[in-house]
Design a protein around this nucleic acid. Structure first.
Lengths: 199, 199, 199, 199
DNA sequence: TATGAATGAGGGTTCATTCAT
DNA sequence: GATGAATGAACCCTCATTCAT
């Protein structure tokens, strides 16, 4: 009897390729990273790589999807009781991964690509929608509890909050010798003052 | 008999090339836009283009410099008396160019590139420094006038403000059917609440 | 316990592969059809396919042999008494398969390949020899009966007849909106006038 | 002042490439001949070749067009007075190029390709139409002069004649040690008996 | 028997760049 | 100043084939 495909092993290889691709994209950009580069990084021949992904585009899209899901996925684990917005936001900054911002540069690759590639645009939008839904609900709850300014539209506000959040990786790129911890506090302060009920 | 080169005409050609390159970069990305593409867009042969720029890299760098200078240059025209921070910020949003955000996508190309290209990184940093100096001074003046929260460190705060400003073009990419005018108001509100003296 | 290979089943698989290959070659040409394509068409893995054929070349050669044998094999079933040449020829056109000429395009693949591949050349020649032998004998019989022009050399004439026969599939490729039935009649007329005793 | 493109030199290079491609196609087939092979044959780098042709497909199509025009083009030079059909046909066989049939194998490549590539199909059809028009007119004239069987439909007959003509290169491929001169005479006899008025 | 993993050379094509004119 | 000829490495991807299971 012939061996059927082992889905676990297959998926494992896919993940290896995606991880290798992620590293290459980080080093050289989405277009600058070549398939042969990714193959070398993954210890794999080009022919074999195409056994797991039909095209470079597919690798980019899967990587984008996974990356954005991971980036925004830290919010999902807070359990049943939704925290107030301010608490939630303050927790954002403590999430793992933000400590090493370098890997966040891929976000800019994706933003750039999204402007001209409809599929990447859709992936970005869909992944953003997920976290916006959560933020919108959290803001509404906060408003009901009197912890968030009720005059702010939750839906619109959620978009601004995500943008501000994702803008943080800009800071080390734009400024030299940045004290990121200090900037983190400032952004937290800004959001806190933004959201809280006005006198 | 031989004509000396006319510096003005020479500079004019350079500008034409840079404008053509900008359009190509916008359409295809920094790496996706090819020299021959730029040549076609500029109505010029490759040999001739290399008369004005020594390499594609040089075109990208010059374009980056010009673009960032223009993007952040709107603040320079306010004359002698520095406006208060809040007024300044509110004016940011009325600056020409923000109406059509599409051209801002190049910013993300540059942010992505800056992460792996030290020369682009330097150009980005230097151009950001200029506006940060201005913002820092404005914030300090605002604090002296009692219009800005004196507990905010002007230098750090300027970095956050620039990041928030540059994050705005993310919004249309991340969200579908965005009401950008509404978002603009929200960001203005956020900054205003952030900066104003706390009770 | 181990099953011995079943020669019948083995041959059955080979036929399946050859049929799948034939369809692929028809769609994409001998070189344009890939092994993986043939595998998909045959519902088989590449490793398994190589269990039945040692190489793609072997598949092509076997397919060529089978195809030519089938193409020219319609003449074999006429029993003991050889028909006169004219009758034989008129029957050629009623043979099954000529109604759908599309599958005959493979003949041109083989002719093209035969020009540079000695093995295909040999297969083509050998298969043609078979039908030429039959035609030669038929022509000689016809001459003996006074139904065929005795001045025609039977051996040379048989080659021309086969060529004319195999040229028929060119017609739909070369002319638009061809009335193939009409052309069939014309060719029959041509051969009939060619062969019959001259006054 | 810059040198404008020299159309003659440009066309000359194109012809060189086409000639090199023709030789490669003859040796290895349309799909078997690679661009790098053609480049080597033409003494040219791949980048440069693509300066003259946008794709391999374009090379094939141009080659096909030129080849078929040359193959069928020998009929054009007969001047004003159309010869009778029999004379015309007899002249076909004396045309230069038929002596070396090897280059005619490309015809089979084109026939095979025409079956699955609509553009090659169109090129083949269009080129065949040209010679069919001439043959049709010649046949009609021959009928008016009483030299051609008036019961033959000139249009349909022209198609059959072209097919028979183009089938000639099959003979050396199909038969071993062929006396091509003898076959030529046989085909001429066949056509002559086919066309002449019946008693 | 039968599978899919695995290879690496080669496919067509584009690239940034240089050079003679 | 300005052109288009010319390069050859590298691009993404597919190929026929082998091998462990």
């Amino acid at each position: 009897m012939a061996r059927k495909i082992d889905p676990e092993q297959h998926e494992g290889k896919r993940q290896e390729i995606l991880a290798a691709a992620h590293r290459c994209f980080l080093r050289n950009g989405l277009q600058g990273a070549s398939i042969s580069m990714i193959c070398k990084e993954a210890g794999m021949s080009p022919g074999h790589l195409y056994h797991y992904f039909p095209s470079k585009e597919a690798i980019i899209e899967q990587m984008a999807d996974d990356y954005l899901a991971a980036l925004h996925g830290h919010f999902g684990g807070h359990g049943k009781e939704t925290p107030t917005a301010t608490v939630l936001l303050s927790e954002l900054w403590s999430m793992s991964g933000w400590d090493d911002l370098s890997h966040c540069r891929i976000l800019f690759e994706l933003l750039a690509e999204a402007g001209r590639n409809p599929r990447i645009h859709a992936i970005l939008r869909d992944n953003t929608d997920g976290i916006r839904d959560l933020l919108t609900a959290t803001l509404a709850t906060g408003q009901a509890r009197g912890e968030v300014d009720p005059s702010l539209d939750p839906r619109h506000t959620s978009a601004v909050l995500v943008a501000v959040l994702d803008a943080a990786p800009m800071l080390p790129l734009m400024t030299d010798g940045l004290d990121f911890e200090e900037s983190r506090k400032l952004i937290t302060t800004m959001i806190s003052r933004f959201l809280r009920p006005q006198p």
